[in-house]
């Protein structure tokens, strides 16, 4: 825990508890950092981008992804079993009529082992409390203005499932390779706070 969160009362409390655990021999020196590093090692937004790009170029994969994402991503050599516990993955796809956005109002649930750490704003109380109530307004603040006719669904990851959004494939990308398409996908797009 010592590498990135040095400031603040919470960090101080975590360091204190960590020191007590080490003092009592319940935790080896540096064990926590090693565990966290191992947990986060396989996660990256690039995984999500690769999943999305495959769904854009392969309608069969898209169908399997939306039906059972945990199983479908194994086709790309990825797995939801890499985390501390196996969590089901659900992928929700944006369409011309429907936009999806993901939040965890209770804490900060996010598919970390698949997509890497969540952005700081995802964990902020402002995002968590406001996006369920006024998603259109929050998305506008992110620079995403949705047409009036587009219906919004907010997914609150309040229990076991982890969610990712499959953005719409941008216009004029017919000539791009799957790899180039993956390069268009952002972490915000995977959460639903950006178009792609």
């Amino acid at each position: 825990m010592s590498t990135t969160h040095d400031d603040g009362p919470l960090a101080a409390r975590v360091r204190h508890v960590e020191a007590l655990l080490e003092e009592r021999g319940w935790l080896a020196d540096g064990e926590l950092d090693a565990r966290i590093d191992a947990f986060a090692a396989g996660g990256s937004p690039a995984n999500g981008a690769a999943i999305v790009a495959r769904a854009w170029v392969d309608p069969g994969f898209r169908e399997r992804l939306l039906a059972d994402a945990s199983t479908a991503i194994e086709e790309l050599g990825m797995s939801m079993a890499a985390g501390l516990q196996v969590q089901p993955l659900v992928a929700v796809a944006n369409t011309a009529d429907e936009h999806h956005v993901v939040v965890c109002t209770l804490c900060s649930c996010y598919p970390v082992a698949l997509l890497g750490p969540s952005p700081t704003w995802y964990k902020s109380e402002a995002y968590r409390s406001r996006v369920v109530r006024d998603p259109r307004g929050v998305l506008r603040e992110f620079g995403l203005e949705l047409p009036d006719a587009v219906h919004i669904t907010v997914w609150d990851a309040s229990a076991e499932t982890r969610y990712m959004v499959v953005p719409r494939r941008p216009e004029g990308t017919d000539d791009l390779s799957e790899q180039e398409l993956a390069g268009l996908v952002t972490r915000k797009g995977l959460i639903g706070t950006a178009a792609v």
């Binding site: 369920v132 998603p135 259109r136 009036d148 219906h151 919004i152 669904t153 907010v154 997914w155 609150d156 990851a157 309040s158 229990a159 076991e160 499932t161």
Partner: peptide
């Protein structure tokens, strides 16, 4: 305007 919120319970 209305929207939907899906909560896992």
């Amino acid at each position: 305007r209305d929207h939907a919120v899906v909560v896992e319970l």
